[in-house]
Design a protein around this nucleic acid. Sequence first.
DNA 1: GGCGAAGTTAGTCAGCTGTTCAAGACGCGC
DNA 2: GCGCGTCTTGAACAGCTGACTAACTTCGCC
Lengths: 202, 202
Amino acid sequence: MPRISVAQRRSDFINAAVEVIAVYGIEGATTRRIAEQAQANLAMLHYCYDSKEDLFADVYDFVAGKFREVLKDSDPHANLADTARQLLRGVMECYLESANFAAATLELISWARRQHGDRGIAVYDQALETARTALRGATSDHPVDAETIDQIAYVIAALADGFALNWMTYGDRSAATEQMEIAVSVLENWLTVRLGSSPAAL
Amino acid sequence: MPRISVAQRRSDFINAAVEVIAVYGIEGATTRRIAEQAQANLAMLHYCYDSKEDLFADVYDFVAGKFREVLKDSDPHANLADTARQLLRGVMECYLESANFAAATLELISWARRQHGDRGIAVYDQALETARTALRGATSDHPVDAETIDQIAYVIAALADGFALNWMTYGDRSAATEQMEIAVSVLENWLTVRLGSSPAAL
DNA sequence: GGCGAAGTTAGTCAGCTGTTCAAGACGCGC
DNA sequence: GCGCGTCTTGAACAGCTGACTAACTTCGCC
């Protein structure tokens, strides 16, 4: 068996942690299970990371980074409604691609909420803020009021999260694909009415 | 200190379990913590319940029952759109009333999903089915096709779950109240278009 | 050959888990 | 008062699992 660099190992551990968190939950994500999933020795984990907490910090960053990635690369030339649709679709496709990623994300959000206080709400909050930024970017030449941006971001988040929960629960890919379209049409219809009186949005 | 009946104690333990699950997660919901929350001795728990599993079965029933309660008492004379709106509002108000109930429910759903196989998806599935039944009831005199009912139930569930996640994360009651109205308007606009070509629905 | 990075084995030890038991305290009919 | 069944408790049990580590071996490169 070939030797693997620490950097690669770290990445393996992060991916393994996501899988284990999805399957066993945060509390069930033990060092043993993560090591096993990464096909590495338990001691290897502590060779790459000083502590479990350090690994989890990286997992956190990984998930937040993935959201940033998905939400950032929206077409800059699209209008507000198109951008919103793209954001929603992007997130849902990302969930659909990996049910484990979706599950781990929800697990992390729940877990973060429990550690009330400090920076508990980071994953959810960061994703929402990234979405807001993208929406603002789509209206840079004709600014839309902050409240509207907030509302659109909220609806996108709600529809995406609701989608994730259903998809995770049933694991039915074909149903999820249809529900993705429904979610998009729900967003579209609302946006049409919500932005209807504001010609600047289109 | 007055003596308390076993029946009352059981009820106390169930409520305590919901609180503890919301705060510490399913895996963190230990017998000790639940007993403490219920202001009872640890041995008392095993005096009322043979095992922790027995208690959790009751917690499960309690949550499912609450959903049934909320979803069942919708106005039988309302049309489909009104019924849908009432269902969504009912669930969101129920969540808003107790953030811990909302948190515990999501925790239970996540947990149930992990026990893949058998009846893991019960809470989510039962709630969805109850909603479908209520929707069907609203169209008993002019039946709507099953697919439409399914889609409406899905959108209600998604909006309610997305609402719950946001409300749980931020714990901002005034924001949640506004988001409740947004969710309702999102549902309404979609329903108008979705059912627009079907005069029987109104 | 030597040296450092990668990998392993076999633990340590603390903490917490669900559960039980023996014993005591209350309340109520007699 | 006396029983008696229903509550209530502190203390313990036995076992598991958690994160983490020290000491050792192997690989690959200069």
